[in-house]
Design a protein around this nucleic acid. Sequence first.
RNA 1: GGGUGGUUAGCUCAGUUGGUAGAGCGCAUCAUUGACGUUGAUGAGGCCAGAGGUUCAAGUCCUCUACCGCCCACCA
Length: 730
Amino acid sequence: MDDKFLKPYNPKETEDKIYKLWEESGFFQPQTGKSETFSISLPPPNVTGTLHMGHAAMLAVEDILVRYNRMKGKRTLWLPGTDHAAIATQSKVEEVLYRKEKKTRHDLGREEFLKSVGEYAEKSHDTIVNQIKKMGASVDWSREAFTLDEKRSLAVKTAFKRMYDDGLIYRGERIVNWDPKMQSNVSDDEIERKETKAPFYYLKYGPFEIGTARPETKFGDKYVVMHPRDSRYSKYEHGQKIDLEWINGPITATVIKDEAVNMEFGTGVMTITPWHDATDFEIAKRHNLDTEQIIDFGGILLPIADEFKGMHIKKARPLIVDKLKKKGLVTKIDEDYTLNLATNYRGGGIIEPQIKEQWFIDVNKKFKFKNSKIESIKNEDETSLKEIMRKTVDSGQIEIIPKRFEKIYFHWIDRLCDWNISRQIWYGHRIPVWYKGEEKYIGIETPEGDGWKQDPDTLDTWFSSGLWTFSTLGWPEETDDFKTFHPTSVMETGYDILFFWVARMILMSGYLLGDIPFKKVYLHGMVLDAKGKKMSKSDDKNAIDPLEMTEKYGADAARFSLIVGAPPGNDISLSEDKVRGYKYFANKIWNISRFILSNIDESTIKQKPELNERDKKWLKDIERIVEKISKDIDEYRPDLAADEIYHWVWHHFADKYIEEIKPVLENGSEKEKLSIRWTLYTILTICLKLLHPFAPFVTEEIWQSLPERDSKMLIAAKWPNNIIKDIVDS
RNA sequence: GGGUGGUUAGCUCAGUUGGUAGAGCGCAUCAUUGACGUUGAUGAGGCCAGAGGUUCAAGUCCUCUACCGCCCACCA
């Protein structure tokens, strides 16, 4: 027996060494010559981020699936990469730039700024990669990808051009979610509404009373809107002009009747600001009304505000309210009003709706479906992107686990509007469109000749993420990897990005390949702290750092603690006690092995002796466990499998069997001892295999010290199967 | 407002087609110098949120209620 067993298991001394051993073995790469495949694309973490508990949980689940399927003999690929995370990364660099040098990106200029973002991303990249390794993730580093590298750029441009040529991408002037802080718009899905207390003002508007939380937008309000069936206002006619006194003097207002008005709310009358409100914009469009910009893209009031022009809205508001009060136009102020403030979920800027020209993907436009591998849409059928997203899941070709998220997904699709894909930030994939006067060019390469200017906007980061399952495999080239590993077996990710990402992957894959990107979607929950807050938020001081946990208790313990009791889709709250508990388990495995190895010798395990009934019973019992574990993992319940194996190894195998046979090893007959020794060793090797996907480090370390084993490395060992047939009955 | 998840031991949470309530940490008693610094055995502690229903049988299925959370939504 190896001397290392004389001390307790020491993850710190073991893990890096074992990871290196695996990497050098080449087993992270798919083995050739096998037909059935299993593939997962790693959801790429932000290149500038650090590993949080959510990542750690994700890596644990995926590594379990991957190691299990690899041991089952499948040709297994887990492809890693990082995401340029346009907005998040750019904001981070801008913040540092401002803090250190008091400069903005405009002071540096586009080219120089991008260079510094690139450098920052590159430097940061190694951090996240090393953290992924610490968790024991058996990803194939030789195929690592980045959402903004050259190959992925080609995929993005190819996708854009195809969609443009099919009329699915268009440029249009719409009301968009403008973030004045970041100087870019964001898509509807990137809006996070926060409940905020704010005063709500009731203002006299001629004969009417209107309500607003934003008096600073009201300068241009010259339409007063009410419901056509509101009897209170039946004496006013649509189109009627009314002269009245307003903020900066007398104006003429026009009465508009529109069903969008809620009669129950307030007085049932409102004025509209079409340039800065989505609902108002729709009303204005319906009645062909004038629109006028009140606030510029930096949050500064325009000349229409008269004496307030040039002021920031934040400063102007109290002054405007003062003026309104002095003029006797304020009738009431509700100081305790709650409104849903729209903020940018990345970066937190307060959204100011603005009308702006942007690029969109049309999700409703019909087009002819080509190369269909989607069961529910026939080749050459007329379809739309929305229909692709719906039918692939509705037909069951893609299965979302747990099932309840399918309903949420459908609900989202049904109210989905065109996807705004352009951003005014600099870091990201530049829109592959060039202009020269009236001419326009859309393509992969910069057009020949002078005078072409590229569109300044970049693409929504989820555009490139949407291609991830196949751009990482070499698409648009028809590579062997692409043919072999796509569609991928399962997409394992958090439910919080079901819309952002999962839906967009289905859209992109469906349109570009006529195929699904993955067969299953496994959604894991959020890791919560003791207060029930998401641990992935970097500003959360209660967060448990996964690296600190691996440092203190070992990666195997961290993995176990993130798996047990975490069914798909359920949030888990993690405590340090739980991690510690599983560290003890790793040591228990260590000591079981120590006990067994000190009680056998090579000659007693090489040849199967005649087995007594007790040992046969235990061998049958572990076969039952093997079947249970396999079934649980096959059904995407690693949480149950982990709990089951934990319980069996500790409280059955160790507490019962080993305790039972201890006296027999002392005083029993030679025949009995032979049977026991062989059984102990056999069960140990099976247990190590069963435990390996969950606790890869400690099991591999023990495996390396086994005198007799059917594979040099545990990572490549064969998953146990038909034990009774192979052992007991022969 | 619509949808959705939760409510189980002192704490944090599991409980897969309905069949005698489980884990980690904590607690009590005993054993143990040991394969185990991290051990074992035994035990205390649960009207499984509340009410009704289906069933031979409900933590589990159905209906309603309460509270907590999350997602969605154009109430200015």
